[in-house]
């Protein structure tokens, strides 16, 4: 049942004695069970603690429904915008060489290394009451911070690099030959992109979109800073979970959290499928999808 990589029972020189193997596997799986499986199970068990009726009732609460609507709205705004940016940036950075290219790639990765709270803070500094545009916005009665636009902007910042950093290495490794060939055959720029480049990178795009969406829907720290935490209007699903938990409505909090946990599981499943497809594409050869 437990074998070494090459299926051998364990040639003495190149693999461990069986007892070592069993021990290592036990420790590794125990660690993962403690830190991964237990929390995952806990979400669903605690969500259903009061039974199905209470679970569905918690999900149908008006505040929860408006939180779901706001989360969906945020995702619908941020994911396509960052997708478009990712594709455009990957074209500019992968198909051409120019001075400053690696600096630009590093800058695109910046949001990854910034704490979510700091991400929210910088938008408060720009659009908040004491911020750069604060007085201007107040005069014109435009609300950005503590309102929906602020939430969308902060989420866009946090999910900024996902599609780009998937596509740039992918398009770089695919080179320019096929596009140049298409041009010599008379294709225009957009034609070349849609009929030559896009089929090669479609799984990479999907992968980036899946990750971007998961982060956009689940972002907590950055949104917490820019949101007004007003129930029913400026709460996303993660913020709603926090509110319910802090007022001791544990079953309801976990019921709403279970939605996000299900989203996470779907994300993992889709991610695994797309990874498999990408690996397939490399072994068969690009352009033969």
């Amino acid at each position: 049942m437990v074998t070494g990589k090459n299926g051998d029972g364990g040639a003495p020189g190149v693999s461990e004695p069986a007892w070592v193997r069993y021990l290592l596997i036990a420790v590794a799986l125990g660690f993962l069970a403690l830190f991964l499986l237990l929390p995952l199970a806990a979400v669903f068990v605690q969500a259903l603690e009061k039974g199905w009726a209470a679970y569905l009732g918690a999900l149908r609460e008006p505040d929860t429904l408006s939180a779901v609507r706001l989360t969906l709205l945020t995702a619908v705004c941020c994911v396509p915008a960052n997708l478009f940016f990712g594709v455009v940036a990957a074209w500019a950075l992968a198909k051409f060489s120019f001075p400053g290219k690696s600096l630009l790639i590093t800058l695109i990765d910046l949001p990854f290394s910034v704490s979510p709270v700091v991400s929210g803070l910088v938008y408060v500094l720009v659009f908040g009451l004491q911020g750069w545009f604060g007085p201007f916005l107040q005069v014109h009665d435009i609300k950005i911070i503590f309102a929906v636009p602020g939430i969308v902007l902060a989420t866009a910042f946090v999910t900024f690099p996902f599609v780009a950093r998937e596509l740039i290495p992918l398009m770089e490794s695919q080179g320019r030959d096929e596009e140049e060939a298409a041009l010599t055959l008379g294709a225009g720029g957009l034609q070349t992109f849609f009929r030559v480049t896009f089929p090669n990178v479609k799984w990479g795009i999907l992968y980036g979109v899946i990750l971007c969406n998961a982060r956009a829907m689940g972002e907590f720290g950055a949104v917490s800073v820019v949101s007004g935490h007003v129930r029913g209007s400026t709460n996303t699903v993660p913020l709603q979970v926090e509110i319910l938990y802090n007022e001791y409505s544990y079953a309801a909090a976990f019921a709403v959290a279970s939605l996000l946990a299900l989203l996470a599981l779907v994300t993992l499943a889709l991610k695994t499928v797309v990874e498999w497809k990408i690996r397939q594409g490399f072994s068969v050869g690009s352009g033969e999808n």
């Binding site: 049942m1 437990v2 074998t3 070494g4 990589k5 299926g7 693999s15 193997r21 290592l24 596997i25 799986l29 993962l32 991964l36 499986l37 929390p39 995952l40 806990a42 979400v43 605690q46 979510p116 990750l211 998961a214 829907m217 689940g218 972002e219 907590f220 720290g221 699903v237 993660p238 913020l239 979970v241 926090e242 938990y245 909090a253 976990f254 959290a257 996000l260 946990a261 989203l263 996470a264 599981l265 994300t267 993992l268 499943a269 991610k271 695994t272």
Partner: peptide, 29 residues
């Protein structure tokens, strides 16, 4: 990487759970 055991692929996919799970859910759990 080195060993084969039942459920290995599932465990491999689950390792990414902390990446995919929203932080608030992890927090309260």
């Amino acid at each position: 990487v080195r060993y084969r055991f039942p459920g290995r692929k599932l465990v491999d996919a689950l390792v990414d759970l902390p990446f995919a799970l929203p932080t608030a859910v992890a927090g309260i759990t």
